[in-house]
């Protein structure tokens, strides 16, 4: 293959903003750049990102999968679609064409969202290293052969060498990015969109997924499944296994970039912003309740951590912890039933 000429520098005036979560951060960043000023929680809510799923038989980097969000990629697609923005999404079989497509988009002055394997990003602190292949970053230019990266999780920008970027874009082993790129095919003129319809769609999507799961591991049924499992652990597993399990839930809830309490706080922020934009008191009330639910999830994490540390308080036991989870399931069920009615009543 002929050696490619050194690429000329490109610098797109993309304003970097730190986000709590990579995918919603990238979505909000691209939308804001193309004239639809929107916050990260708003993008998350319109994309319908909130979820719950419990998969004790699946492991990701030695950790059993408990998810508090929807499948990676869903938020970005659905938010763009519901806001009526024209976008382009592409995967590649060949590394050469993947790089060419990226360079062409950058040359055309478009910042590009790129799905990458987290493990291969050299700027990731070592405590965070894990093979998570659905991380999203924004590339907004080239300088001296390196790519300029707006990493949503960080408060500053980074650069990436082409080799490292290529490795990250073609990470393997589950949720393979295959070099996936997204960009918006819009100009940068300011856009006014009524948020009523997209917000209602996003909320109804989340309510549907939480309340009518096809299998008992998802939605509020999944939370109850977890609650029942915690009770069984005490009988069936060794002490070390139980502590590992508890720690793994806490990791998925609090450590994996979520803005706290397994995305519950971010969703509360979305509801609060939606209430303000639509001047809707029902949503404002829902936001306060979601915030309280988030506090409750964190209280659960705190108890679990006391066990993990081997220093439980006198009142802590597995039955109480299971009770907390069951209580959360009941509370979320009641919450989403009410919210569904509120969303159905929103006039577009």
């Amino acid at each position: 293959m002929p050696e490619t000429l050194p690429s000329p520098d490109v610098l797109i005036g993309y304003p970097h903003r730190q986000a709590a979560h990579c995918e919603s951060g990238a979505t909000a960043g691209l939308l804001s750049f193309h004239g639809l000023e929107i916050s990260e929680p708003m993008a998350f809510g319109i994309g319908g990102g909130l979820f719950f799923g419990y998969f004790p038989f699946m492991r990701l980097a030695h950790v059993k999968v408990t998810t508090f969000r929807k499948m990676p990629g869903a938020v970005i697609h659905k938010a763009f679609k519901r806001l009526g923005m024209r976008y382009h999404s592409e995967t590649f079989w060949r590394k050469g064409s993947a790089r060419r497509a990226l360079d062409e988009a950058l040359d055309a002055g478009k910042p590009v969202a790129c799905q990458v394997g987290f493990y291969w990003l050299p700027y990731v602190p070592r405590a965070f290293r894990t093979h998570f292949n659905a991380h999203h970053i924004i590339l907004y230019g080239r300088q001296g052969g390196d790519y300029l990266v707006s990493e949503p999780g960080l408060d500053h920008v980074e650069t990436l060498q082409p080799g490292a970027l290529e490795r990250a874009r073609f990470a393997r082993g589950g949720m393979n990015p295959r070099g996936r790129l997204y960009w918006l095919q819009e100009d940068r003129s300011p856009k006014q969109r009524s948020l009523a319809k997209p917000v209602a769609q996003g909320i109804k999507d989340v309510c549907f997924n939480m309340l009518t799961p096809p299998i008992p591991l998802l939605g509020v049924r999944g939370i109850r499944f977890l609650g029942r499992d915690i009770l069984k652990w005490e009988r069936r597993l060794t002490q070390a296994q139980v502590l590992d399990n508890l720690n793994q839930i806490v990791i998925m809830q609090e450590v994996v970039g979520s803005g706290g309490a397994g995305f519950r706080y971010m969703y509360a922020a979305f509801l609060s912003e939606a209430a303000q934009a639509l001047e809707h008191t029902g949503l404002a009330e829902a936001s306060r309740e979601m915030n309280a639910i988030g506090d409750r999830w964190r209280a659960f994490a705190l108890v679990a951590t006391r066990f993990v540390k081997g220093r439980p308080d006198p009142g802590d036991n597995y039955a109480a912890m299971a009770g907390m989870v069951m209580g959360l399931a009941d509370r979320e069920e009641a919450f989403f039933r009410k919210l569904w009615k509120v969303a159905k009543a929103i006039k577009p």
Partner: peptide, 25 residues
């Protein structure tokens, strides 16, 4: 970044250097 409620009841992003729970995790 974390999302939290400020004095006026609005959600704002707040940077955090960690939490005992996630550090233990």
């Amino acid at each position: 970044l974390m999302y939290a409620v400020d004095e006026s009841g609005r959600f704002v992003g707040v940077q955090s250097v960690g939490w005992d729970v996630s550090n233990t995790g």
